[in-house]
Simulated assay, not measured.
Amino acid sequence: MAKLNNRFWFQLHGWFSLPIWLIFCFVCLTGTIAVFSHELTWLTNPASRATNPDKLPAKPVAELVAKVQQAYPTADVGGVMLFEPYLVHAITFTDQDKPFAIAYVNQYSGKIQQINEGITFIGFMRSLHGWLLFPWQSSHSIGYYLVSAMALVMLGALVTGLVIYKNFWRSFTQPKIRFKQGKKTILTDLHRLAGVWSIWFLMVMSATGLWYLVQAVMWHADIDIEPHAPLVAVTDIPAQHSAPPVSFADAMHIAQQRFPNFQPSYLMLPEHNRGMYSLMGGGEHIFYDQYSYNLSINPWTGDIAHEKSPANMTALQSVMHIADPLHYGTLGGVWTKAIWFLFGLILSGMSVTGFMMWGSRTVKAVRASRNARSLQEINHGA
């Protein structure tokens, strides 16, 4: 009975990942690459590098926006994306001959180093990993559901693996890989050892993946986790003014006064007369992402119409802003990214070794079945 029970758990462990092992492996690999997407962008695209040989201080973001507006007088600047100090600022805009463009502006020299009118490597890798480039229909994507559902596969493989591998904790103190006992034994030892040492990583990926699945369902059901940015009241817009009196520089100053540790990451300018400055950034909380602080500033009055920070978030909002740093390993900078990258490779390797083990057993079982059938036919003929 115990043998039958172990066999059941072993088969369940295999079926949790084998039917979609290729997708699972692909998601693991793309996620691993996405962890270092910023560093790979710096490595492969010289125009993305924020070189600063003269050790100049970073210029105000509003000044960089003015540089783009001077270079393209008819452009409509939509927003600014800020990354690590070694990457340039990305200023998005539209123009007469540019439906959508991104200006790579060096924040130290103020030089426009490139105009990108296509998808960026960072955006491509995050999209490929997040929803496999499946199209979005209104508020949902089949690809997003498919990727986030991998959390159930991962959690099931983790639980069944721990049930199968008795006394798994010994791999922490007495790790072993038997190189002289054949391919099957080596694969089994590597798979088990990697699985035990990756328990914490599997738990983090499963938990954050499950949250992404819940988030997808809420988006699909039009349940807002965070409120939409408010609109400027019609009464706040003077009839005689053609442009708002509060400039982008003023809005940035207001945000810095409200949150002294505000580190801007995504800044949106008003799209129309009733639009507001929407300023998002991080702060001193390392477990929260770079969008955990959000201010909506009225461009006509300078009032803060809405604000959000870790201090006044709901429980769901807190989970939403903690999930990404835990999933991509950005909470501690390049060092935690390196750890996440390493364990991402290990997880990808586990999916490969698991498939190889399953394939080896399947081939062996098929051969044994054929031999048994042949023997039966021989005996029957005799």
Rank of each mutant, 00 (worst) to 15 (best):
M320C: 01
K337W: 07
G332S: 11
S309H: 05
H327D: 03
A323R: 05
G283V: 00
H321G: 04
H306S: 12
Y328T: 07
L326H: 03
I322P: 03
A323T: 07
Q290M: 06
I297N: 02
G329E: 04
L316A: 12
N312D: 15
Q317R: 01
H306Q: 15
S278R: 12
N312R: 04
G283L: 03
E284C: 00
Q290F: 02
A305L: 13
S318V: 05
Q290S: 14
V334C: 00
A315C: 07
G281P: 08
M320R: 03
T336Q: 07
G282N: 05
L316R: 02
G329K: 11
Y277T: 06
S292K: 04
E284Y: 03
P325H: 03
A305T: 15
G281L: 06
I304L: 13
S296F: 01
P325W: 04
N298W: 11
Q317A: 10
Y277H: 10
T330D: 08
Y328M: 08
Y293Q: 08
Y293A: 09
I304P: 13
L295A: 02
P310I: 05
P325G: 14
E284H: 02
H321C: 05
D303W: 00
G283Q: 06
G332V: 10
P299N: 05
D324H: 00
T301R: 11
G332E: 11
T330L: 15
T336F: 06
S278P: 00
Q317M: 01
G332A: 15
Q290T: 02
M280G: 08
S318G: 12
E307D: 14
H285A: 15
G332K: 09
M313I: 09
P310C: 13
G283C: 00
E284Q: 08
H306N: 12
Y288S: 04
G302H: 14
M320K: 01
F287K: 11
L316Q: 08
I286A: 15
A323P: 04
S292L: 09
V334E: 14
K308I: 05
W335Y: 09
E284V: 09
D324Q: 06
Y288I: 04
A305K: 03
T330E: 10
E284S: 12
A323V: 04
W300K: 07
L326G: 05
A315G: 12
Q290D: 15
M280A: 11
Y291Q: 10
G283D: 13
D303Y: 01
S296R: 00
